[in-house]
């Protein structure tokens, strides 16, 4: 099973591997959600939704349903 941002726990980090361009708005890509970039889950609202992320230095919040479409790999260092 592939790991996505929705699987991250608070404080965990990962690297974006693939984004399915069908499900992800261009705006999110433009804000830095691109393959190779680091992502960290900073905070979650109740029921883990929405999720407050730091992607590539940009702090933003997305809903869990969107987070499920961003595939990541766990970051090796740290």
């Amino acid at each position: 099973m592939q790991l996505t941002i929705a699987d991250l726990k608070r404080g965990q980090k990962g690297i974006v591997k693939d984004v399915s361009s069908k499900e992800i708005p261009l705006k999110l890509l433009e804000m830095g959600c691109l393959p190779g970039n680091h992502v960290e889950l900073l905070q979650v609202a109740p029921f883990s939704d929405p999720m407050y992320l730091n992607i590539n230095g940009t702090h933003l919040a997305i809903r869990k349903e969107t987070a499920k479409h961003i595939i990541i790999e766990p970051s090796t260092n740290e």
Partner: peptide, 10 residues
Amino acid sequence: KSYFVVEMPT
């Protein structure tokens, strides 16, 4: 379809 992206500025 609903997207939701919100920036959390400093």
